[in-house]
Design a protein around this nucleic acid. Structure first.
Lengths: 151, 151
DNA sequence: CCTTTTCTTTGCTAAAAGCAAAAATAGTGA
DNA sequence: TCACTATTTTTGCTTTTAGCAAAGAAAAGG
């Protein structure tokens, strides 16, 4: 009865584990090729041009501690990729946003990172790409809600 | 024409990125709950009972440097989870294998880690689980071969 | 034998990350 | 008002993760 679940769970566990290792290696390569630390790349990748973020927001969406984020932002600030201003409404909050230089870089990063994936995906069928999308989408949703419940 | 590819690549890039962060958080929680460092958990997860591995083999399959592996194995050895003996045929090689204690632990780890995924997967249909499997399987293959070509 | 190659370890350094305490600010109840 | 509490971020410190380059040890070939 639950045998099927157990089997599928095992198989998915294994695959996800391998995928994770590969994707980490991939991220590391990409960041290095662009003169960024992995943490910086990961951070830049989630900030959108024009929006501003608190340290906490960034920490939460990156699954890291606020103190860790302060350090990552320090680095980006030093490279003039982000601005950091105190919020006027509540001066405890920082407002982190991309500088012009940051926007340009992030635009390029997103484009090139998508191109890299395009390169990987170009030789398979549209259908298979859709299977990848659906599968990962489902999985991402599950892991995400599991985390909320269990963290 | 290639518009479809570009779109799909972007979407998959984004999703994979999010999935990665979540799975890393998940691994970290799991390792911590079992009194292991993340690197130790990752290493234990790939060694099978009865088999023996060289440092290099482990390094390659974990996408890490041999020197890093030496240190991880040091830790596991200190906890008496693995044995490390010199190969008799070629004494440059180390032969890393699980101790009894290690086998017991790894058995438990694998079971519980699969259970954790079973927990996540239990409320969706067999069909959706299969979609996850297929999607991740395809993606893992692509990233893996991309890495071989580009590393 | 001597040189070269291969596998692992060691010493050192950098990057990644968290914890606990401090600092700054906001909010609140007496 | 003012003392106390809560929130947000930063700082100091430590741990974990990771790689590089050199050293050590063993094999392989000339």
């Amino acid at each position: 009865m639950d045998m099927k679940l157990k089997e599928q769970a095992s198989a998915i566990t294994e695959l996800t584990f391998d995928l994770l290792r590969c994707c980490e290696a991939k991220e590391k390569m990409f960041a290095k090729d662009h003169g960024l630390k992995v943490a910086e790349f990961r951070c830049l990748r989630i900030v959108e041009a024009g929006k501003s973020y608190s340290v906490q927001e960034l920490a939460t969406s990156m699954h890291l501690s606020p103190s860790r984020l302060t350090r990552i932002i320090d680095g980006l600030f030093a490279e003039k990729l982000v601005d950091r201003v105190q919020s006027i409404e509540d001066r405890r909050f920082a407002k982190i946003s991309l500088t012009n230089k940051g926007q340009t870089l992030v635009g390029k990063l997103k484009e090139e990172y998508a191109d890299l994936h395009g390169e990987m995906l170009k030789d398979i069928s549209v259908d298979d790409r859709d299977k990848i999308y659906q599968g990962i989408s489902l999985m991402q949703g599950l892991v995400s809600t599991w985390l909320v419940r269990n963290a």
